[in-house]
Structures are given as C-alpha cells and as structure tokens.
Design a protein around this nucleic acid. Structure first.
Length: 768
DNA sequence: TAACTTATCT
DNA sequence: TAGATAAGTT
C-alpha cells in the first residue's frame, strides 16, 4: 500500500477544469484568478484550469468543443442573454447534466437554483472558503464521474447547498470505491451518455491489480490514482471532427496520429483516437456485414454490376474527389469498387483477408443509437456534399451519411424512419435518408444508392432504383420510371425530361442524356440507342426509328433527314452525312466513316460526341488518318451547348461487327503503331472476362476483331468497312452491344428473383 | 521504438 | 456498449 501510494503520488495529476461564466468582466477576472491561484490539498496532484467566458453564448460554444474537458461550471445568475439557470438548462439539453454552480448576490435565487438542478449556490461576493468548496466539488465531480451524484434518483439532493454536499464527498468516495463494480453496467453507461460525465477514473488492469492491494476508501489514493486517463465522451461534435479528419485524410490513410493532429483537441490523446478509430472500423465492418443481405441481392461489380460491365461504373454526373472521405470510401470503394470486389468492398479498413464493405449501414447506426451517435435517436448524419456527388442543385448542401452533423434534424423513427441517414434500409425509408441501399422506398433527398422500391424526388440513388425514381433523382438505374432531372443511367421505365439516364427501356423525354432508349426519344436527347424515333438534335448513335435534322446519330434504321452525319441508315437519307445507306443518299452527305460516338464514352460516362484527339499514350504525329465527316457535322453539343469531346483512341471507335467488316466497300485508315497494343490492352482485360462485353463485335472474339488490323508492324492498316454486304436485322445491330442481351437476361433473372414474392410492382421488362 | 492494429477488459 | 488499456505487429 505504501508503495502504491507513493507511486500514485509521483505519477498522478488530477487535472480539473472549471468554467466560470459571468458578464461582469472584473468579477470574472478576479474570480478566475482566485480560483487558479487557490491551492487545495496537495497541489502536486491537482492542476486547476479556469476557463473564463463572458456570457451564456460563449459558454455554450465553449462546451461544444470542450465539453469533455470541463468538470464544473460556475455561472452568474444574472446575465443578459439568459440567466444562470437558463444556461444550466440549456447545458443540460445540449450536453447532459454537467455540474453547475450558480452564483448571485441575490440569496433569493438559491432555492430556485437548487430546485432547478443546480449543483449548488454561492452567494456573492465569493469568500475564500467558498472557493475551497468549489474546488472540492470540482474534485468530487472529476473523481466521481460515474457516481450517483448526478443521477435523476439523486436529484432531490440538489436541495442541499454546497457545504452539505461537500461534506458528503468522503462518503461518496467510499461509495464509489466499494460499489463501483456492483453497479450495473447499464447504469454507468447511461450515466456516461446522458449525464455527460466528462471523466471517469477507471484504473487500468494493472492498476486494478495494485488497487486490489490498497484499501478502498483511501482518500489520498483515490485522489491520486495513477495514469487515470480521463474517459472522454465522443460527443457529436467531437465525432464530427473525427469524421472530418478522416474525410480530410482519407479513410485509407487515416491513422490515429494523423486524425489527432487534424482534430487538434488538446485533451485528446492518440490512444483516444485509436480506440475510437477501432470502434469506427468495427462499425464499418458491421455495416458491411449487415449490408451483405442486400449486396447478395445486388451486383457485385459496382454500379452496373448486374451487368457484367465492371468498367462501367461511373455515372455521368458524378464528380468525385479522391480527397473526400465520401469519395475515397463510399464512392470509390463501394459504389465504384474495382472489379473483383463485391459491391462496396474494400480492404482499406482491415488487415484481414476479409474485405471490409461499408456500403450499408446497420440499423443501429442508422438510428444513431450506437457508439457514434449516442445522444440521439435516429440518424442525424448528413448527406453527401454536392462537391462529391455533383448532382443537381436540389442536392446542395448534402453531405455524407457519416459527415459531420450540420443540418441535423430530429428523428421520427427508430426503424427506417425519416431523416435517417443510414446506409441500408430493409423496409421503407423516409425522407432525407442517406442510405445506400434501401429495400423499401426512398423519399426525397435520399442519396440512397439502391432502392428496391420507389424513389421519389431528389433522391440521389447512385446505383439502382428498383422502384420508381422521381424528379431529380440521380439514380443510375431505375427499373421503374424516372422522372425529370434524373440523371439515372438506366431506366427500365420511362425517362422524362432532362434526365441524363444512360439507358431507358421506355421513353426518353427531352434533354435526357440517356444512352439507350427502347422507346421514343425526344428533343435534345443524346442517347446512343433508340429503338423508337429520334427527333431533331439527338446525337444518338443508333435509332431504330427515324432520325430527323441535325441528328448526329450514327445509325438509323429509319429515315435520316438532312445534315445528319449518321453513319448508317437503313432508310432514306437526304443531305445526310451518313456513310452507309441502305436506302437513298442525297447530296451533302459527307459521312464517310464514323465509327462510334459512344463505346468508350459510354464506358467513361461521357456524353456522346466525336472529336478525334490524340490518344494520351500515342504519338501526336501518329494520328490515325481517318476519313471522317467534318467535325462540325460530328461535334455534338451537350444540353449546355458545350462540345463534347472524346479521345481518339480505339475505344472511341465502335468497331463495326464482322458482318459489316466483310463488306465490299472498305475504307482504309492509318493507325498508330501502337494501335494493336492499345486495342489489346483494351480488349484483354485481365481482371475479368466480362469486360469483353464492350467489344462491339457482339460476341465475336478478340481474334476475330483483330482481323481488321493489318499485321504490319509499323504502319498498320485498319481495314474498316462500315458497309454491309447484307442487311442486318435489328437484333444484330451493332450499337446495342453494350446492352448485351445475355447480360440483360441475367439482370432480368436477377430482377425476377429480386421481385419474386414482392407485392405490387416489379420492373417493367421491355422484352415482355 | 514509435505507431499501429487487435484483443481484452470493465 | 463505449472507451481504455494490454498485447501483438509493423
């Protein structure tokens, strides 16, 4: 005992922080000085810091940062903004039951103060003896962070004044020392979270062993337990800061030291951060585990992985920044995971072989009843920031579901209710959810990735909506309808105006940048494929209907009107620039060879355009000598009037399939010497064989494709024929290659299984 | 040996 | 459960 006591005395300093609030600057200064200068007990074991603030507002703002660091608050009663008791109540609301002592020269406020839950009352002017009592109370608060001093059950004790309280201290010490282990854990937990005890004095295991040899109730020993680190509470703000740090550093690079440096909180230690980081990673792991329920039902190759197109992973309108936490984790690692990883899989967070997937959030975290939001019910995480998602203006201000907690709103549901920012919802989820996957509906402002039911307006569903997606939902895929301003990529339902959906199996309305439509396309739709009509200014590549003026569609099975630089037409052309015509060609149709607007652009989620440019890796002097229509005929303008540009590499060329390449009429192109290498690189992807889907030869092997490449080493000639020597039926139409029927079939099977047993709607299978 | 991760404790 | 701490690893 003597040894341990000496040990403690040498190594332990009890740091106590007292915040004094008074609008009287003179009193505030004097009070602070006297408190700091006051020596109580053994000063070698105590270190007092006074935080002086001039009003309630400053007190509250200070507490937001230093809540865990403040052991006692001493406040004047009469202050301009709110009086001391109002401040106390506000502190309780925001930070839990921090001990507050009220000071006033008005002794009539003592009873009111104590009745309202103040820890004590001190009459001004403050006497020196009162300072000692303040100290003693602060020490008590510090040491008895988990004592019953602040509990509701003990609330009546607040009727006693400070002297009485202080007299209780030794007994409370004994009580704490002897009954601590007997207290149910739930008690200590609730105390920690609801009462906001700044610190506890749990000894380490080693210390426990030592302490076992020390008589309990030894006041000196209790006061000077060694290395008793304050048990910090990760408040919302603190956790927000933690998340900001992770976002800033990047999840993969975020280690305790860096996080700590970023957070720059004086009382935080690296161990604190490490511990929290561990819990956070465990949380993410849980998210993944919980999410496996959904991910098993979902594609495993990122966004479009129900298609075996692992490379087609970037939605048109995402502008992810690698520096953002959301970008590096959620987007890059989950939604846009590399081929070979399951959806959302990442190994960043684990050293184990088990990949960490964190694209789904367990409900307990959604509801914020867990470690990382212990003080609230329901989610109050924020939504993705616009800079990360670069979605429409409706999404402004959104941040990640794990972003700091601005715009926090009250929760209305413990399970999948409104304002939940969770990742996964098995049932319906209401407004403002940030969930990535919802098996229920998604309401407005839900940046959910997947929804198995309806998604309504301003939902940022990245991946899929298996229900409807309504206005301004940037869902990439919808199996039901997408309404205006939905930059969804694929829709199995209708797309209405201004939806840059890539694929639609139904109608596309104006300004929809969908790549494919199985129905009609209206104005300003830069889709690639259309099985319906194409109206003017649609730079589609393929239309199974008519093409009207100024349509840069490559292929039309219908009529091409003047100034259409379409390559192929199966109907009549007038003044079209189409090269191949299975009908009539009229004057001013300069179309010679126009291979593709969209193969790589589709892969890269670029708008359909054609503008030959040097391949990044090719010699600028070795440009392919391709006869192409004038650029003015080919350059496409997006809806904003911007010229869309594509790189002039092989990926930008949609190789006509073999039937075409066997055509009589040929056009020769000089290709760069590295063309073959480039093409091989493009078409021989190691990671997955599914990549061959983008080979527009539609099921033909790479070798077959290579027939088009002359064997000469230095001056390879690409014998590209865009003519057909025989008519193709629509099913073979080359530009549909990206919608591999087999893949679609797989997806339909997937969807069938997904919706099997679901009441109500499934998705609209265009093949039916 | 500092820093990190994981396991364990309370 | 949340956080601290021990133990093992890099």
């Amino acid at each position: 005992m003597a040894f341990s006591q000496a040990f403690y005395n040498q190594n332990s300093i009890l740091r106590i922080n007292v915040m004094v609030v008074d609008d009287d600057p003179v009193f505030l200064r004097i009070m602070s000085q006297r408190l700091e200068n006051f020596k109580h007990r053994d000063s070698s074991t105590m270190e007092i810091t006074v935080i002086a603030v001039k009003d309630s507002r400053e007190a509250l703002s200070t507490l937001k940062i230093e809540r865990n660091n403040i052991d006692l608050i001493v406040t004047d009663y009469y202050m301009p903004d709110m009086n001391g008791l109002q401040l106390k109540n506000q502190i309780t609301r925001e930070f839990g039951n921090l001990p507050v002592i009220v000071m006033s020269s008005d002794t009539g406020k003592e009873h009111e103060s104590l009745t309202c839950g103040a820890m004590g009352f001190i009459q001004k002017p403050i006497k020196a003896t009162e300072l000692a009592k303040i100290y003693q109370l602060a020490v008590t608060c510090k040491r008895n962070g988990k004592s019953t001093l602040w509990t509701e059950n003990n609330h009546n004790d607040t009727y006693v004044s400070i002297p009485q309280r202080i007299q209780l201290v030794p007994e409370q010490d004994n009580l704490v020392m002897t009954t601590k282990k007997k207290l149910p854990r739930s008690d200590s937990r609730s105390m920690n979270s609801t009462n906001g005890s700044c610190v506890s004095t749990n000894a380490s295991r080693k210390n426990k062993k030592i302490k076992a040899n020390v008589g309990s109730g030894d006041d000196v020993e209790a006061l000077s337990q060694p290395s008793k680190k304050s048990k910090i509470t990760w408040t919302d703000d603190l956790h927000d800061l933690f998340l900001q740090a992770i976002r800033h550093i990047g999840l993969d690079k975020a280690v305790p030291k860096k996080i700590l440096e970023f957070m720059n909180i004086s009382y935080l230690t690296r161990e604190n951060v490490a511990s929290h980081l561990q819990k956070y990673r465990q949380f993410l792991r849980k998210v993944a585990e919980r999410g496996s329920l959904c991910s098993n039902m979902l594609p495993s190759n990122g966004i479009d992985s129900t298609y075996p197109y692992p490379r087609i992973t970037e939605p048109c309108y995402n502008n992810y920044t690698s520096s953002s936490w959301y970008g590096t984790s959620l987007n890059n690692r989950s939604c846009y995971s590399e081929p070979g990883h399951g959806i959302g899989q990442s190994r960043l967070l684990s050293n184990t072989s088990d990949p960490v997937r964190f694209n789904q959030m367990p409900h307990n975290y959604m509801n914020r009843s867990s470690t990382y939001e212990p003080h609230r019910l329901g989610s109050n995480l924020n939504q993705p920031i616009e800079s990360n998602l670069n979605y429409s203006s409706q999404n402004e201000g959104r941040r990640s579901f794990l972003e700091p907690t601005a715009n926090k709103t009250s929760q209305t549901s413990q399970v999948l209710g409104f304002e939940q920012n969770g990742l996964s919802a098995i049932n319906g989820s209401g407004f403002n959810n940030n969930m990535l996957i919802s098996c229920g509906s998604l309401a407005p402002n839900q940046p959910g990735t997947n929804s198995y039911k309806c998604s309504i307006s301003t939902q940022q569903g990245i991946l899929s909506a298996y229900g409807s997606s309504t206005s301004t939902q940037p869902g990439i895929r919808s199996h039901i309808s997408l309404t205006p301003n939905q930059p969804g990529r694929s829709s199995y339902g209708s797309l209405t105006a201004a939806k840059p959906g890539m694929s639609s199996h139904e109608s596309l309305s104006p300004n929809q940048q969908g790549m494919s439509s199985y129905e009609n396309l209206t104005l300003n739709q830069p889709e690639m494929n259309n099985r319906g009509s194409l109206p003017p200014d649609q730079p589609q590549m393929s239309s199974y209907g008519n093409l009207s003026s100024n349509q840069l569609g490559l292929s039309s099975h219908g009529i091409l009107t003047p100034n259409q630089p379409g390559l192929k037409i199966y109907g009549t052309e007038t003044h079209n620039a189409g090269l191949n015509n299975f009908g009539s060609l009229t004057t001013h149709q300069p179309g010679s060879s126009n291979f593709s607007y969209g193969l790589q652009s589709f892969v890269d989620n670029e708008n359909i355009a054609y503008k030959p440019q040097p391949h990044p890796r090719s010699n600028a002097t070795a440009q392919p000598n391709i006869e192409i229509p004038q650029q003015e005929n080919l350059s496409l303008y997006d809806e904003f009037g911007n010229i869309n540009e594509l790189l002039c590499d092989i990926s930008n060329f949609q190789l006509d399939h073999n039937k075409q390449q066997e055509a009589v009429s040929t056009t020769q192109f000089e290709l760069p010497s590295n063309f073959s290498t480039e093409m091989n690189q493009l078409f021989s992807l190691e990671k997955d064989d599914d990549w061959t889907f983008v080979n527009t030869n539609q099921g033909h092997s790479i070798g077959e494709t290579s027939n088009n490449v002359a064997p000469e080493a230095n001056s390879q000639t690409f014998n590209m024929s865009t003519n057909h020597d025989q008519e193709q039926d629509a099913q073979d139409f080359v530009d549909w290659s990206f919608l591999n029927p087999a893949d679609l079939a797989n997806e339909y099977d997937f969807m069938d299984s997904l919706f099997n047993g679901m009441n109500g709607k499934g998705f609209d299978d265009p093949r039916c």
